[in-house]
């Protein structure tokens, strides 16, 4: 097995608040291989966005990250300035809100070439050529004239394409996509997903795709990490997660996906009762136990990690329910 492109060990993100320290990410570990798509799934507030920002070293000032290991292609990203040098060049990121992620005051072209000129250099004309090329690659016609436009002149779908083109200007090896299609309507969403898959094949890009939408995961993921309350509750290949989900939380999430043909019209989709526990202070035992139909007294004690091969889950239960 070759060394992973990105290796994350025991990553933690803590935020100091007035009422105590909020542990947004509680010691998670995963690897991303070159060219693969890893989906990080979970509800709002489970720490998936904090994880992505921590990887890019873009956390807000109140948040502190720590890890026993965080390497990108062998480089230790916990050392000062390493992540700073990698981001925008070898690892790029796109965000949920294409409407606000571009600066309203500058043209598309200006925003696309500035990072390229900073990281790669060369003449401005060459950078503009590359930007036009990238726009065509993400399926934007009359690319030249688009470069002179401002973000407010483009639709949400086009802006997200611009964001993708901009992120790929420097040929990064890793793209972190934080809910990139959540703000788009369904047809545009499908187009963007297909575009990402095509680009991945063409460029050998590794993608970390962060989403709350498990239905979407089934269409793109090679491997899946399921997060709950700041921790990984289950990890495995897409096939393992969808065909043999082991953790009750994963099972509950899968029940929430409507399935054409199977789910009857008018039938209630699954919901998970209860709310996510507070992330302030320590969490003993399984964080999901208050919402879990299968919980027992022993769930309040530290939970073992079980599994085999690439499939792992954190639950007292040996086999899937």
């Amino acid at each position: 097995m070759t060394a992973p492109l990105l290796s994350v060990r025991d990553l933690r993100v803590d935020l100091k608040t007035r009422i105590g320290t909020l542990h947004a990410v509680r010691g998670i570990s995963f690897d991303v291989a070159r060219g693969e798509t890893l989906c990080i799934v979970g509800e709002s507030g489970c720490g998936k966005s904090m994880t992505s920002l921590a990887l890019m070293d873009l956390l807000p000032r109140v948040a502190k990250r720590s890890a026993s290991g965080l390497t990108f292609d062998g480089q230790d990203m916990m050392r000062p300035r390493v992540a700073e040098k990698l981001r925008g060049r070898r690892m790029a990121m796109i965000f949920q809100e294409p409407m606000t992620a571009l600066n309203p005051a500058f043209t598309i072209g200006d925003q696309m070439v500035e990072a390229y000129l900073f990281h790669v250099g060369g003449s401005r004309a060459a950078a503009v050529d590359r930007a036009a090329q990238m726009l065509e690659k993400v399926g934007i016609g009359s690319a030249r004239s688009r470069l002179g436009q401002y973000p407010h002149q483009l639709s949400g779908g086009l802006r997200q394409r611009v964001m993708i083109a901009m992120a790929l200007m420097t040929e990064p090896e890793l793209l972190i996509a934080d809910e990139p299609t959540t703000a788009l309507d369904v047809t545009i969403q499908a187009q963007i997903l297909r575009l990402l898959k095509d680009l991945q094949r063409e460029l050998g890009l590794a993608i970390i795709f962060i989403t709350h939408d498990l239905g979407l995961v089934s269409r793109i993921a090679d491997r899946v990490v399921v997060m709950y309350a700041g921790a990984v509750v289950e990890e495995g290949s897409a096939a393992e997660i969808f065909e043999a989900p082991a953790h009750p939380y994963t099972c509950a999430l899968i029940d929430c996906i409507p399935q054409p043909g199977k789910t009857e019209r008018g039938a209630h989709l699954g919901t998970i009762p209860g709310v996510v526990p507070s992330l302030i202070g320590r969490q003993e035992g399984c964080a999901f136990r208050d919402r879990c139909a299968l919980s027992e007294a022993v769930c309040a004690r530290p939970v073992p990690v079980r599994g085999h091969g690439s499939h792992h889950w954190a639950c007292i239960r040996e086999v899937a329910a």
């Binding site: 890019m56 873009l58 700073e84 040098k85 990698l86 981001r87 925008g88 060049r89 790029a92 990121m93 965000f95 809100e97 606000t100 992620a101 571009l102 600066n103 309203p104 005051a105 500058f106 500035e114 990072a115 900073f118 990281h119 964001m163 901009m166």
Partner: peptide, 26 residues
């Protein structure tokens, strides 16, 4: 605190450029 400043930082631009170009202009 805007998304576009986060984008500018994600692009790996130096802090000076992020502050004086992307934020100050607006």
């Amino acid at each position: 605190n805007t998304d576009y400043v986060r984008t500018a930082r994600a692009k790996g631009l130096p802090a000076r450029r992020v502050v004086f170009k992307h934020a100050l202009r607006n």
